[in-house]
Deep mutational scan, measured.
Amino acid sequence: SDPSEDRAPESARVGNIPSSTSALKVPQLKVAESAQGPAAAHTTDTAGYNAMEESVSREKPELTASTERVNKRMSMVVSGLTPEEFMLVYKFARKHHITLTNLITEETTHVVMKTDAEFVCERTLKYFLGIAGGKWVVSYFWVTQSIKERKMLNEHDFEVRGDVVNGRNHQGPKRARESQDRKIFRGLEICCYGPFTNMPTDQLEWMVQLCGASVVKELSSFTLGTGVHPIVVVQPDAWTEDNGFHAIGQMCEAPVVTREWVLDSVALYQCQELDTYLIPQIPHSHY
Rank of each mutant, 00 (worst) to 15 (best):
E273R: 11
F92T: 04
K183A: 14
W239T: 14
A35H: 03
S20A: 04
E68L: 11
S220A: 15
G194V: 03
V215Q: 13
T258N: 02
T43D: 14
L188W: 06
R69S: 08
L63V: 13
T201L: 13
A35S: 07
A93F: 03
G133I: 04
G134L: 05
L81M: 06
M76R: 01
K151N: 08
S34R: 08
L219T: 15
T82Y: 04
G15S: 08
D237T: 11
M74K: 09
A23E: 14
Q281F: 03
D181E: 06
K91S: 09
W136I: 04
V165H: 05
R161T: 10
R123A: 01
V70L: 08
K151R: 12
P9I: 06
G249W: 11
E107Q: 13
E106G: 10
L81K: 01
G225W: 08
M207V: 12
G187H: 07
R13P: 06
S66Q: 14
Q272E: 15
R7T: 07
C191L: 13
G194P: 05
A117S: 10
G162S: 01
I17W: 04
A254P: 05
V234M: 08
D157V: 11
E33P: 09
A93V: 13
F119P: 01
R168E: 06
Y49P: 12
T43S: 08
C271M: 02
L129A: 06
I282T: 12
H170V: 06
E118V: 05
D2T: 09
H286T: 11
V14S: 08
T82L: 05
I147L: 06
R161G: 04
V165Y: 13
L274A: 12
R182Q: 04
N243K: 15
D6T: 12
H229W: 15
V56C: 14
I282P: 15
H170R: 03
V77L: 02
H170Q: 02
D181T: 15
R58G: 04
T197V: 15
M251R: 11
V262R: 02
S75L: 06
P3I: 11
V215M: 05
S20P: 05
F222K: 10
F185S: 01
G48D: 04
R94I: 12
L278A: 13
E84A: 04
E85L: 03
E59V: 05
Y140C: 10
G15F: 14
E107W: 09
T44L: 07
D181H: 08
D163K: 01
G172A: 04
M52D: 12
I147Q: 09
N166A: 03
G212Q: 12
E260V: 04
D157I: 15
F158M: 02
Q209K: 10
L63A: 15
D45P: 10
L125S: 04
E59L: 09
E33T: 08
S221V: 15
R186T: 14
G162F: 00
E253R: 02
T109S: 12
S1R: 10
Y193E: 07
E253T: 14
N169E: 04
W239S: 14
S4F: 11
R168L: 11
V257W: 00
W261V: 04
A40K: 04
T197W: 06
C211K: 00
R58S: 12
M152K: 03
L188R: 06
V138C: 10
Q235L: 04
Q180I: 08
W261C: 01
R161P: 05
R73A: 14
S57K: 00
H229R: 13
K72G: 07
E54N: 13
A23L: 14
R259L: 02
M76I: 15
N71S: 14
C271A: 15
K25D: 15
R13N: 00
S11V: 12
P195V: 14
S11T: 10
D157G: 13
A39G: 01
M152P: 06
E260Y: 13
K91L: 04
D181A: 08
E5F: 03
C271S: 10
R259I: 02
Q209G: 14
V14L: 08
I104R: 00
K30H: 10
E253M: 11
T109G: 01
R13F: 04
E159A: 04
E253G: 13
P27H: 08
K217Q: 14
S4L: 10
V70F: 09
T258Q: 15
A247S: 14
G15P: 04
D157R: 08
E241L: 04
E53I: 05
V70T: 12
K95S: 07
V262H: 00
